[in-house]
Design a protein around this nucleic acid. Structure first.
Lengths: 238, 238, 238, 238
DNA sequence: CATGAATGAGACTTCATTCAT
DNA sequence: TATGAATGAAGTCTCATTCAT
């Protein structure tokens, strides 16, 4: 192996669509209705962009930033090399955009307003469930790992996630903790200073699954259940 | 910059030794005493090797595997580029060797025989203290982050660490947990199934400090203290 | 910047019309009067062509042939990139056409029939004045520089200008010289063999102004006046 | 033709040495004498550098800066593509260095101290002769044309030549003119203000030979002789 | 006719690895 | 054993040209 990639050359990641994309049959031209054709074009553009992002996700998560070849991204997306540059200024922009906007929706989902009158434990159980369903069992886990791996080398990216994701996540955790303390579900008030402790097992799961799942699969749900049992006193639960 | 690294070129990492290493004048050969000169040479060789590994550590942790240039490693180590190949087969070998043997000693330290009659909490407190002192506040934290970042792309490396480090660590955690349950310091027996929970905050600290310390410094010791307070019932502590 | 241009990317040459050209609303077709609409269309076509040539002039003179991007020409002309190909076969054709027809009119102006009975000196003074007014102080100087710069690499272009411009210019110079000799204004008959000497200062001016005007502005008119004083004996002048 | 070059692809300029350079038989290693081997290496480096510069000269003068491929320069120099980067930072540096140092020696030659008691005409005749012999009939003419062609697009280059070459040349011309006026060889004192007029025919020759020599060869020596006859009164000549 | 998204060949540049000294 | 000059494969990015709309 010559340059720098650890594993096999030529796309260790299996590529699903070898030829040109299916293109969802746009060849039939109605020849009038400029507006529709314009929106069609816009639609096509959006599709292409999405294809590129999707392909980039696969390649970047499989190889990391430096070892990913835009050539491979293009092939996987079913576009020419130059096409990528119609949508993204350069490799780094594609990479950052991918990471920037992929984890954002999570915050919305995780911060969904809890049903009233519910226990703190139930609130966090809901968090955990969403995390498992929407991250652990999804490509988002790969994205999170990618962020953990490359964040240090892209300070602006780290900052973005700190501000847009982490700060809100920490705040949410703190609210749950405060609520739990208030309701007597959580006894240790120092937890308020380290709300990260609530998320630590979730993060560990993501890292573990990336590195060691091959050798020792980890049941995220069960692990988090145990975590919850430890963090919350059962007293006030039904 | 064209290829792949996000930040500045030309060694973002400050290099301590600008000129060629002092090299302690080896050119004048005394021409007798082959045995001593042989051992001297071996010593010199060992030093060189160590210098290369040390330099590689700096560069790899600062840039990751792919973006690190052997040229920079050589410069930092004070040797010629070709010299690296006298000690390591190639870039990947150097990288793996670096990671393979750098974290091993930890297991010994962490697995040091606990003083008899001590509480489970005290045992884990000792663990935590060693971890903070020997990892968090050391270059080992960088190595751990490097492992987390690149492990997925070097399966053999991940396997090595799983077998040589993680398995033992998990076993040690489990022993502490069992002991804690036995002594009544730990009430939740399910923890025995997920000893990772004991380590999760430590790992979170390492990741956090790599990504977010700039924006929100994290006090590893205090965080772990809180963690310990939660995991261990205080009843039986002195 | 990676490829080839020395200075700043993104059009160092200031572009006058930022948005799309006004285009004088051609979309509403009155659907009758085909003849007039045809001529209108022809007019529109001629305008477009002219806009492209004008834009090409700016860009080519600013960057040279190879470093000029048709994309920039199109933007500056207010047309789409593809439109250029409706009027010109390719980049080189556009370039050559630009150069071919831009300098031709000069020959007419420079070869204008001199008022009868005038001195040779006056004839050449008139040449010089036209040259200063119509070349030196005009974009034509840029075109001349462009020809000088790229002519060697476009042999057919050099040949064209030799035949269509230079030959006539040389002939005109020779006529002036012969006339001057005949009238006793020029004493050195060898000048007839090197009529280029009459034009040399004009050419030097164009080159100098392209390269060094920043550091040492050159007054074309005054320089040529001195040149004339040297070439023509003052005896017979009024 | 695809990208940008006007004429034929694949090196219009004939390449003399297809294989690896002759390398002047350095294979015989004397195995001792480090100093000599070091100087040998230095010698080799100097040769290589020279080969690259020489090749670059050919290619740049044949195609201009933008259209020259470093690949071709490397092939012509008999080195690998990467080798160029051991000696020059990038394409532009190679180009500028080529131009910067190739014309400098001229100033020395042209500014050689004139024999005492000689006429101004003889001094300038000597200038002219050196110019013809060392520029017109040499590759330096190509370099001068290259400078004229690309100077506008490399402001620093134009400035360098203005300061290092032109200023001195102009000063030398002015000295000759002053001397000629003093000796009564030159009558028009205004020439002191436009010493460029003395050089104009030389420059015209270089440009002409680049563009039109194919169609109308120009005898530089004869043209300059006529020029001299016109500029200098014959009175004081023998 | 006009558009401009898409293409893909090709240029510059980097850097792991080799090998003569 | 150590060196570091040399190599050349490979990657990123550009831009002339095409073509469906």
């Amino acid at each position: 192996m010559s340059r720098s990639t650890p594993s096999s050359r030529k796309s260790a990641v299996p590529k699903p669509k070898p030829g040109r994309q299916v293109a969802t049959a746009t060849s039939g031209r109605s020849s009038k209705s400029q507006a529709r054709s314009a929106s069609l074009r816009a639609l096509r553009a959006a599709e292409r962009r999405a294809a590129i992002v999707e392909a980039a996700l696969e390649e970047f998560t499989a190889r990391g930033f430096a070892a990913t070849r835009l050539d491979d991204v293009a092939k996987r997306a079913g576009v020419a090399k130059g096409t990528i540059y119609l949508y993204f200024a350069d490799k780094e922009t594609l990479f950052q955009e991918l990471l920037r906007f992929s984890l954002l929706p999570l915050i919305g989902e995780l911060g969904a307003p809890p049903p009233p009158g519910v226990s703190a434990r139930a609130m966090f159980e809901s968090f955990a469930e969403v995390f498992v369903r929407e991250v652990t069992e999804t490509k988002r886990a790969d994205l999170l790992r990618l962020l953990i791996s490359e964040g240090q080398r892209f300070p602006s990216l780290a900052e973005f996630h700190y501000r847009e994701v982490v700060v809100h996540g920490i705040a949410a955790m703190r609210r749950v903790i405060a609520y739990g303390i208030e309701r007597g579900e959580i006894s240790n008030k120092a937890l308020l200073d380290y709300p990260q402790l609530l998320m630590a097992p979730a993060m560990l799961t993501v890292v573990w699954q990336g590195l060691f799942n091959r050798f020792a699969p980890l049941d995220a749900r069960a692990l988090l259940r145990t975590h919850i049992d430890i963090m919350f006193d059962k007293g006030n639960a039904p």
